[in-house]
C-alpha cells in the first residue's frame, strides 16, 4: 500500500523518464508495490534512454541508496526531496516510442 505522497513521487519519477502521460496519470490512484517494482526495472533498463535516469542513478549511487532489489520502495517517500525531481522541464526520452509504449503497458498492467 502506497501513501498519496509515494504515489505522487512515483508518477513524477515515471514522467521524468517517459515524459508526462495522461494515460499513466489516470491510473496513479492505483499505483502499488507491483508498480514500484516495474518502475525499478524500467530505471535499470532505461538508463541510457534518458539523462534523467542517468542523473538519478548517479545521485543514488553517491547517496549509497542503490544497493539491491527493492531500493526504490525504500526511498520512494523521500524521493522528491532527495533528488529534487521536478515535473516541469523534463528531459527528452531518447529511445523509441515503441520502448516507451512497452513500459507504459507494464506500468498500467501493474495497477489492474
Amino acid at each position: 500500500m502506497l501513501t498519496e505522497k509515494e504515489k505522487n513521487n512515483l508518477y513524477i519519477l515515471i514522467s521524468s523518464i517517459l515524459g508526462k502521460d495522461i494515460g499513466i496519470k489516470s491510473y496513479k490512484m492505483r499505483f502499488n508495490d507491483r508498480t514500484v517494482k516495474v518502475v525499478e526495472d524500467m530505471i535499470r533498463t532505461n538508463i541510457h534512454c534518458n539523462n534523467a535516469v542517468k542523473d538519478l542513478f548517479s545521485a543514488l549511487i553517491t547517496a549509497g541508496k542503490l544497493s539491491s532489489k527493492g531500493w526504490l520502495r525504500k526511498i520512494l517517500s523521500s524521493l522528491d526531496a532527495m533528488l529534487d525531481i521536478q515535473e516541469e522541464g523534463l528531459n527528452s526520452y531518447g529511445c523509441s516510442v515503441a520502448t516507451k509504449s512497452r513500459w507504459k503497458s507494464y506500468i498500467i498492467t501493474s495497477t489492474i
Binding site: 494515460g23 509504449s101 503497458s105 498500467i108
Partner: peptide, 21 residues
C-alpha cells in the same frame, strides 16, 4: 485496456500488448 494500443491481460503471467509504429 488501452495503453497506446490494446493490451490484453489473460492472467498475471500472460499478456499481449500491441502497438502501431
Amino acid at each position: 485496456f488501452d495503453s497506446d494500443g490494446t493490451v490484453i491481460v489473460f492472467d498475471k503471467n500472460k499478456q499481449l500488448s500491441g502497438f502501431i509504429i
